[in-house]
């Protein structure tokens, strides 16, 4: 019963969806202010989701069954990530060994759901988007995992999120060292790609491939994808916060750190043009991958 409450309401699905939609509003508002506009009211993203629930759902001719199922896979796994992360922030002693690895796997599933959904929709533009998304996953996963290995090395090989938080509480944040700073920057850029934000949004570009992976989705499944994105906007910065800035996670500091990371992500989004997919793959394998390797070596030497 407790587990179900954790999963569905707090800190799982409902809570993370609400925070994620509000974070999406922060994103839109900051973007608007940077472009000297006024921007939407705070409830705009909720309205979008409710409206999508009210609309007709069209299944294109020849689409496979996975077209309707895959959005739910992404949402369910991401809600689980939100639950595990939230629990290990509230009560670091709670949790099981290896939940960090589970979280890493589950964080990958929304991208895979997007790929499966897009490629079962029988739309050529969607399959272009899916192939771009796949290449992007291949590009950013390696540096992301390497930078998390830095965290594991720094906390003496603990692979439990609560354990990492406890270690940081005792010995200071992981970011307070050279390797920590490098790993944090790399992970931040990878999160940018995970969220599908500019400059790494080639798979969803509105202008050239008309929404790419999402092109055939309407109504309910589109709403589910939007919700997944919103929860991603909540969980991904939260993961960065727990892994790198976990010294003091009392509510006020946690909210401040979360908003700080969010604003940095939004600023990166607004000050960069979109990269072509080959440029982003090359970028990820040249700079973040090499930098994170350097960070791993530095961490092994205790720097």
């Amino acid at each position: 019963m407790k587990a179900l409450f954790d999963y569905l309401i707090f800190p799982g699905f409902l809570f993370s969806a609400v925070i994620g939609l509000l974070a999406g509003w922060v994103d839109r508002k900051v973007t608007a202010r940077l472009q000297w506009r006024v921007g939407p009211p705070w409830y705009q993203n909720f309205m979008d989701i409710i409206k999508l629930f009210c609309k007709e759902t069209i299944v294109p001719e020849g689409a496979k069954l996975t077209f309707l199922f895959s959005p739910f896979f992404g949402l369910l796994s991401l809600a689980l990530v939100a639950t595990i992360l939230g629990r290990s922030i509230i009560a670091p002693a709670y949790g099981f060994i290896g939940d960090l690895i589970v979280v890493l796997y589950l964080l990958m599933i929304p991208a895979i759901a997007l790929i499966i959904g897009a490629s079962s929709s029988k739309n050529p533009l969607a399959s272009v988007g899916a192939s771009r998304e796949m290449k992007l996953v291949l590009a950013y996963e390696l540096p992301f995992i390497l930078s998390i290995i830095v965290v594991i090395i720094k906390s003496q090989g603990v692979i439990r999120l609560g354990g990492i938080v406890e270690h940081q509480m005792a010995f200071g944040s992981n970011i307070a060292s050279i390797s920590g700073v490098i790993a944090f920057l790399v992970a931040l850029i990878c999160v940018q790609a995970k969220l599908g934000f500019v400059p790494f949004d080639a798979s969803e570009s509105e202008q050239e491939i008309m929404g790419g992976v999402l092109i055939e989705y309407s109504g309910l499944p589109l709403a589910i994808f939007k919700l997944t994105k919103a929860i991603m906007l909540y969980t991904a910065p939260l993961l960065l916060m727990t892994l790198f800035l976990g010294k003091d996670l009392s509510p006020v500091f946690a909210v401040a750190k979360y908003i700080g990371i969010l604003v940095v992500i939004i600023l990166i989004k607004n000050t960069n043009p979109r990269l072509r997919i080959d440029q982003s793959v090359r970028f990820f394998w040249r700079f973040p991958a090499v930098l994170s390797l350097v960070a791993v070596v530095l961490a092994l030497f205790g720097k």
């Binding site: 309205m47 979008d48 509105e206």
Partner: peptide
């Protein structure tokens, strides 16, 4: 554009006809 800014009312230009209202 910034002068009129229809996003204030939640109006957005989207790329795919499947998302349109």
């Amino acid at each position: 554009t910034p002068r009129f800014d229809l996003e204030r009312f939640g109006i957005q230009l989207i790329g795919s006809a499947r998302h349109a209202d």
